[in-house]
Design a protein around this nucleic acid. Structure first.
Length: 241
DNA sequence: CCAGACGTTGTT
DNA sequence: GTCTGG
DNA sequence: CCAGACGTTGTT
DNA sequence: GTCTGG
């Protein structure tokens, strides 16, 4: 699952999208603060087609299908499987007509050891910003625009930690993804392939990240030492009884 | 994803 | 809204 | 026809 | 243990 990501260089990430789309894209000044720990329900900058072409809008992460908008049963979806997005009633219309680019600098996956959770940061090589392949749902019923990030099979790097990974779009794929016209099956399949692992980097970061209200650069601090209370070489002392 | 809450009644 | 199961 | 589901991930 | 909020 991809439910946390970082957008800590908003201007640069949006500049990459603007370059790829040959558009002038201006993020509202209130959104340019670094966000190292974005998660569900957060409102973030997203590039989507507007009346005058691509633009940056604030959308809430957590796709709420129009048919589920009953106040007593509001469920939101962080991800949609690329393998099902074109056919499923939940995702199909958005996949055909409301594809967006979600600017990012990296995303996180966790390694569980016993009861401890150790976060890992995944980026592109050389820390190049990229976009997640997103789909969005219109505002209505008092709800804002919401979006989901597509997932696909993991590559060998992400696969060490999880069995899914988000669909990553580098600059040369952005223009083909965004838009309101249905993609050819072959184009959709190509764009949603797992990103090549040799073009990515991974490193463990501080558990400060685990708390989703922590949004600062400390999230990328060095990992804390792991508690080695049971070295294999030393037998545990018998505590008796 | 992880962290944190998870309950009732009556009174303010 | 749209599809599936009965 | 109507009723009910429609989703993801991780974990078991 | 399980649900909710971020």
């Amino acid at each position: 699952m991809c439910v946390r990501y970082t957008l800590h260089d908003v201007n640069e990430a949006i500049a990459v999208i603007a370059m790829a789309l040959a558009r002038k894209l201006i993020p509202p000044p209130s959104w340019v603060d670094p966000r190292y720990n974005i998660t569900l329900t957060n409102t973030v900058p997203v590039a989507a087609s507007g009346s005058g072409g691509a633009e940056i809008r604030g959308m809430r992460w957590g796709f709420i299908p129009t048919f589920q908008r009953k106040v007593e049963d509001l469920r939101m979806w962080p991800n949609a499987k690329a393998e099902k997005a074109q056919k499923s009633p939940t995702w199909r219309d958005a996949t055909k007509h409301r594809r967006c680019l979600v600017p990012a600098n990296g995303f996180y996956e966790w390694e569980t050891v016993g009861s401890m959770k150790y976060p890992h940061l995944f980026t592109l090589k050389d820390a190049v910003p990229f976009a997640f392949a997103g789909i969005w749902e219109p505002a209505g019923d008092g709800l804002p625009e919401t979006f989901a990030i597509l997932t696909t099979q993991p590559n060998s790097l992400v696969g060490k930690f999880h069995d899914r990974m988000p669909v990553l779009l580098p600059a040369d794929r952005m223009a083909r993804w965004i838009g309101a016209d249905t993609l050819e099956d072959s184009v959709f399949a190509e764009l949603t392939q797992p990103y090549p692992p040799e073009r990515m980097a991974e490193r463990e970061v501080s558990r400060y990240l685990n708390k989703s209200s922590n949004q600062g650069p400390e999230c990328h601090g060095p990992p804390e030492p792991r508690n080695l209370k049971k070295p294999d070489s030393e037998p545990q002392m018998d505590l008796g009884i």
